[in-house]
C-alpha cells in the first residue's frame, strides 16, 4: 500500500514537472535567437588584403571584400513545426569589413526546441521585383545594399568576393591584377535565366531551446575558401571576372557548402 502511494506520488511528481516544463515553453510566449556568421579561410579568421591564401588550383591570392545576403530565415522545431521569420525582418547583409553586420538577432520566435535553421544566400525573386518603397533596411539600394545591386540588369548581387592574384591578368587602368566574383541572378522576371538563389539548411547536433529570457546564440562558421574550391575548382586565371554569366552557377554551387553550424552559446 505504502509502496503504491509512493509510486503515485513519484508519478504525479513527474507529471507535474513535465507539465510545468511544457508550460515553460508556452508557444505564445516569444523568444529570440542570435545568429553569428564568422568568416574563415582555411580554418582561420579571414583577414582582408594582408593575408595571402592559395586556392585548390594552387593560385595565390588575397581577399579584399567578402559580403553576402542572408534572407528568408526559417526555424524548424523538433516536432517538425516551422517558424518563418516575417519577410520584412528577414534580410541581412553580412560584410566582412563591418563586424556589426556579422551578428544579428531574430525576435518574435515562439518558445520551443528547434533543430534546424534554414535561410537563403541571396534575395528571393519576389523582393527582386518589388516596388522601391518595400526595399528598406538591408535591401535599400541607396543605403545598405549599395554595391550589392546590378542596376543595368535589375537584381541583387547575392555574394561578392574580390581580391588580387598574380594569376589574374593585369588591368591597364587600375594597374592591378584583380579577380571579382559577383554572384546573383534570381531567375528572370518575364524571361527565364539563371537562378543562383540557394537555400541552406543547418542542423543542430542537439536541439536548441528558445525561451523568453534565454536567447541562444548560434555560431556559424563560413569558410570563404569554398567559393573557389569544391565541386568545381575555380581558376582565377580563367574565371577572374565571374558575374552575370553561366559559369557563376558553379561558384554558387560551391559556396552552398561554406556554412557550418559550429556551436551554440
Amino acid at each position: 500500500m505504502k509502496k503504491i502511494v509512493f509510486q503515485i506520488l513519484v508519478l504525479s511528481g513527474i507529471m507535474i514537472s513535465i507539465s510545468s516544463c511544457t508550460k515553460e515553453l508556452d508557444e505564445n510566449i516569444l523568444g529570440s535567437l542570435e545568429l553569428e556568421f564568422e568568416n574563415l579561410y582555411d580554418g582561420q579568421r579571414l583577414v582582408l588584403n594582408s593575408q595571402t591564401y592559395k586556392n585548390a588550383m594552387g593560385e595565390e591570392h588575397t581577399v579584399s571584400q567578402f559580403d553576402y545576403f542572408i534572407s528568408n530565415i526559417k526555424l524548424t522545431k523538433e516536432n517538425g513545426e516551422v517558424f518563418i521569420v516575417p519577410q520584412k525582418e528577414s534580410y541581412f547583409i553580412v560584410k566582412h569589413n563591418d563586424p556589426a553586420s556579422q551578428k544579428f538577432t531574430i525576435s518574435g520566435i515562439p518558445q520551443g526546441k528547434y533543430t534546424n535553421i534554414k535561410y537563403l544566400i541571396g534575395v528571393d525573386s519576389m523582393r527582386n521585383t518589388m516596388d522601391v518603397s518595400e526595399r528598406t533596411g538591408a535591401l535599400d539600394v541607396g543605403g545598405a545594399a549599395q554595391g550589392m545591386y546590378w542596376s543595368w540588369n535589375s537584381g541583387y548581387i547575392f555574394l561578392k568576393m574580390e581580391g588580387t592574384s598574380p594569376a589574374a591578368p593585369l588591368n591597364q587602368t587600375t594597374g592591378q591584377r584583380g579577380f571579382r566574383f559577383h554572384i546573383g541572378g534570381f531567375g528572370g522576371l518575364n524571361s527565364k535565366t539563371i537562378n543562383n538563389i540557394k537555400e541552406i539548411t543547418l542542423t543542430a547536433e542537439d536541439p536548441f531551446t528558445v525561451k523568453e529570457n534565454k536567447t541562444p546564440h548560434a555560431h556559424i562558421f563560413v569558410d570563404a575558401s569554398k567559393v573557389m574550391n569544391g565541386k568545381t575548382n575555380v581558376s582565377i586565371a580563367t574565371n577572374h571576372t565571374t558575374m552575370f554569366n553561366p559559369f557563376s552557377v558553379n561558384v554558387a554551387d560551391n559556396y552552398t557548402a561554406m556554412f557550418k553550424l559550429d556551436h551554440f552559446h
Binding site: D131, V132, V141, Q146, S151, N153, S154, L189
Partner: peptide, 24 residues
C-alpha cells in the same frame, strides 16, 4: 534589363562612363 522605371535611374548614376557616382 530594367523592368521598373523607378529602379532605372540608378544605372546612369552609377555607370562609370555616364555619371560615375554612387546612389548612396
Amino acid at each position: 534589363g530594367v523592368h521598373d522605371l523607378d529602379l532605372f535611374a540608378i544605372s546612369p548614376i552609377e555607370n562609370p562612363v555616364e555619371m560615375d557616382d554612387k546612389l548612396s
